[in-house]
Design a protein around this nucleic acid. Structure first.
Lengths: 237, 237
DNA sequence: TCTTGAAAGTGACGTTACGTCATCTTGTAT
DNA sequence: ATACAAGATGACGTAACGTCACTTTCAAGA
C-alpha cells in the first residue's frame, strides 16, 4: 500500500479515481501498468527511468534495454571480483590462520595493476611447457575441489606444525602433498624444484604472483620435505 | 574529506587529535585503519558492519567472510537472472522488430511465475544467531582443513567420474582417499560409515561452494574402490 | 439506521554513505 | 600583516519505500 501511495506521489501511477473519502481506486489499465512497473523494476531500472519509458510513446526500447544490459554486466563483473576476493581471503585464512587486511589489500592491488609485469616475469623464468603447468597451480580464488585439496593439505600442515617435522602426522601429510604434486605436475622434479625456489622467496613469489604463505609454514614444509625424501631414499636403498 | 568527517561523526574512525582550530589530525594508526575500512568496503560490507568487525577484538572473521560470501553469491544469482531476462528481451526484440508494451506484457506473463518464486527473499545473515537458525549446514568455507580434505577428494572424484572407475586420475584420487582413511580410522576400512555421515548433512544448497555428496558419487566410489583393492592385491601377490 | 472494527488515508521520520552547496574559520606562505 | 587556499560546520538531497502515530472511511452486522 505504501508503494501505491509513493507511486501516486511521484506521479508514476495515479489512481483512476478517488472515492469521496479519498480512497484510491484503480482500474484494469492501472493494474496492467503496475505489473509493467514491477517487471521493469526486476530488470534493475529505477522508478525514474521507468516513468520515462512508460510515458514516452516513442521510447527506444532496444537501446534502453541494451544500455541496461551493459550496466548489469558491469555490476556482474564487480560482484564476481568481490566473490573471488572473498574466497581468496577465506582460503588464506585457512592456510595461515590469520589475516592482515592491509597486506592482502596490497596484494590485490598489485594483482590488478601488475598483471602484465607478472606475465613478463613468468615468461623469463619458465619455458612454454612449464608455463602450462603453472596454470595448474592451485588458485586460492576458487573453490574447486582441486584447489581445495591444496588448501586443506597446507592447512593441516600448519595445524600440526608444533609436533615437529618428523611426526608421523606431518610425514603423512607431506606424503600426500608429494602425490598431489606428482598428479599435478608429473614426475618433473626440475620444475618442482624451480617452483619451490620461487615459493620460498617472498619477493620472487610476489613477482610471480603466487599467493603468499607464511614464511614459517614454508620453512617448516621445506624441512619436513627433506626428512620425507631421506626416508624414501632409505626405503629404496 | 567529506568521508573523513562522516567517519568521525559515526565514530568509525576518529582523528588522533585536533589542532586548536579544530582541524582533524590523523596518525599512522588511523591511516592503517582507513585502509582497512576501504578494503572491507570493496568487499561489500556496510560501514556499520565494518565498525563492528574492527572494534570487536574477537571477531570471527571466517564466519563473517563466509556469510558475506553467501550474500554476494545471492546477489550474483539475482544479477545473472536479470542478465538472462534482458538478453531474452533483446533477442525477441530483434526478431520482432518493433516492440511495444503489448509485447512486453506477453513477456511479463512469461516471467510472472518466476516472480512468485523469487518472493521468498533470503536475508543477509550477518550475525551468528541468525545464521544458526537457518543454515546449520557445514559449508566448505567453515570446515577445518581436515574435513576439507575429505570434501575436496570426493569433489574431485565427482569431477572426473565420467572417465570411468579405471581411469588413472580416479585411481590416484582413490589412493589418496585410502591413505587419508588410514590416517583417520586406522587400517580397518570402516570409513564408509563416515562417508554416509557426511552425506546426511547437505542437499540444502550446493552453491556457496557446498559440495553435496550424492548417492551416485558414493556408488561410483564403491566401484572404484574395488578396482583399487584388486590392483593392490595383484601388486602384492 | 446505527455501530463497530478493519482497512485506508495522511504526515513525518528513518534508512546509506556520502555529494554538494553556502558560510565561516584556520593555517601558512609571502 | 595579509591574502588565500584548505579545512570546518551545518544543512539539504539522494531512492524507494518501511514504519510509526493518528485520523477517517467503508462495509457489514444488529
Amino acid at each position: 500500500m505504501r508503494t501505491l501511495r509513493y507511486y501516486d506521489e511521484i506521479n508514476l501511477l495515479t489512481p483512476a479515481g478517488k472515492t469521496e473519502g479519498g480512497h484510491r481506486l484503480y482500474g484494469e489499465k492501472e493494474l496492467k501498468k503496475l505489473q509493467e512497473i514491477q517487471f521493469l523494476k526486476t530488470l534493475g531500472f529505477s522508478l525514474k527511468e521507468i516513468k520515462e519509458m512508460l510515458s514516452d510513446e516513442n521510447w527506444n526500447w532496444s537501446q534502453g534495454l541494451q544500455s541496461q544490459l551493459n550496466y548489469i554486466l558491469d555490476e556482474k563483473e564487480k560482484i564476481i571480483n568481490i566473490e573471488k576476493t572473498l574466497i581468496g581471503l577465506i582460503n588464506s585464512l585457512r592456510i595461515d590462520g590469520a589475516i592482515d587486511l592491509i597486506e592482502i589489500n596490497k596484494l590485490i592491488q598489485l594483482y590488478q595493476d601488475d598483471f602484465e609485469r607478472r606475465k613478463v616475469y613468468r615468461k623469463r623464468m619458465f619455458h612454454e611447457k612449464e608455463r602450462q603447468l603453472l596454470d595448474l597451480l592451485p588458485n586460492v580464488n576458487s573453490l574447486d575441489p582441486d584447489s581445495l585439496e591444496w588448501v586443506s593439505l597446507l592447512g593441516q600442515l600448519k595445524q600440526h606444525m608444533e609436533k615437529g617435522v618428523e611426526a608421523p602426522e606431518i610425514q603423512r601429510i607431506v606424503g600426500r602433498i608429494h602425490e598431489k604434486s606428482i598428479e599435478t605436475f608429473g614426475e618433473n622434479d626440475d620444475f618442482f624444484d624451480k617452483l619451490w625456489e620461487i615459493r620460498k622467496s617472498p619477493e620472487k613469489s610476489n613477482k610471480a604472483g603466487f599467493y603468499p604463505i607464511e614464511q614459517e609454514v614454508l620453512n617448516f614444509f621445506d624441512k619436513a620435505w627433506q626428512v620425507f625424501q631421506e626416508k624414501q631414499r632409505k626405503e629404496e636403498g
